[in-house]
Computed example of a mutant assay.
Amino acid sequence: MIPSLPDTLIEPIVRAALVEDLGRAGDVTARACIPEGARMRAVFAARKPGVLAGIGCVRLAVLAMDPQASVTLRLRDGDRFEAGAVLAEVEADARAFLSAERTALNLLGRLCGIATLTGAYVAAVEGTGARIADTRKTTPGLRALEKHAVLCGGGLNHRFGLDDAILIKDNHVAVCGGVGEAVRRARAAAGHLMKVEVEVDGLEQLAEALAEGPDVIMLDNFSLTDLREAVARVAGAVTLEASGGVNLETVRAIAETGVNVISVGALTHSAPSLDIGLDAI
């Protein structure tokens, strides 16, 4: 079961989205067309099968517009569903509900899309021992929600930001003058709880990195042959992460080389929104 994100984290994101949509004058269509005090009932229903993520956004969007609304969540984040499944049922002031509709659907569809795509990658590597991880290639302002969606799909979270792990990339190496020197500096600066990962672009750099004892080595755009060679050389001494050139057609072969983790930017930067609709009842 996936732990829910706290409301204190989700609510500011939902409210910012509502403010963006309501603009300077609020929902002029709802005020013009819907009688004051009218009530409505509706369900959020899936048009396609998928994995649920972000259902809390629906509840908070509706309650932000109508604190007296009744919101019944039929499924939990991480649950799989088929086309036609009812995800949530709402009874609320009609004007308020219709003003919250698009914000709720945008967030829910986006997050379900990420969870569903993640689930496809996880299924593709099943039985290999490799784990699927996200990256920091997230929508600005939505990182916490999008990384939560990856967890809902069965993936792992990479670092959340620049401050929670040291990740030495090619440009760091270039400025430092080499992989070994960059890892030595990182090791000297890191606290006892701070992990150090270094990206390498070939077997020569792999050997240089191994000598300095990082916690994780990222194998960037390695061929399958070089991935297998890297796994053999490391022999479990450090965690190996494969990155670059990963898609649903290539991920199984990458996993079968024996790497521990495969990071996939597409989980968040290229996931299509899942089709979810609002149906009045």
Rank of each mutant, 00 (worst) to 15 (best):
L267W: 08
I55T: 01
M1S: 15
D134Y: 07
S99L: 08
G78S: 04
I254L: 12
R131S: 13
P140A: 12
V150E: 01
P140E: 12
A94E: 01
L203M: 12
L206E: 01
L142K: 03
R143M: 09
E126Y: 06
T225Y: 13
L73G: 00
N157W: 11
D134S: 03
P272T: 03
D275S: 05
A104P: 04
D163S: 15
T72H: 11
A130R: 06
G26Q: 10
E256V: 02
N260A: 10
L210A: 04
A16F: 06
S273N: 11
D226H: 13
L227E: 10
R228Q: 13
D170G: 13
A235Y: 05
V14P: 01
L63Q: 12
G141E: 09
G154C: 06
A207L: 11
T29F: 12
A266D: 11
T72G: 01
L75I: 05
A174V: 03
P35R: 13
V251C: 04
G177F: 08
R187N: 04
A25S: 13
V183P: 00
V231Y: 04
V173D: 02
E91K: 06
C33W: 14
G178S: 08
G155A: 08
L105V: 05
D77T: 03
V51G: 00
A123I: 07
I114T: 11
A253N: 07
D220Q: 08
A100L: 09
G277E: 12
L240N: 02
N221W: 11
L105C: 02
K169A: 09
I166W: 08
E20F: 07
L248F: 08
K137H: 04
G50W: 02
T139Q: 03
E229T: 15
D163W: 15
P140I: 08
A124Y: 07
A46K: 01
A30R: 10
A69P: 00
A17S: 14
G84A: 09
G141N: 03
A64N: 02
G202C: 11
A255I: 06
A280C: 13
V150I: 05
P12M: 10
V264F: 06
P272C: 04
G129Y: 06
H269E: 09
L22V: 02
V90G: 00
A235E: 14
K48E: 15
E181R: 15
S223D: 07
R47W: 02
G277I: 04
D220M: 05
L22Y: 11
D201E: 15
V183M: 06
L156I: 08
V125M: 09
L9M: 15
T138M: 09
G50C: 09
A211P: 00
Y121H: 14
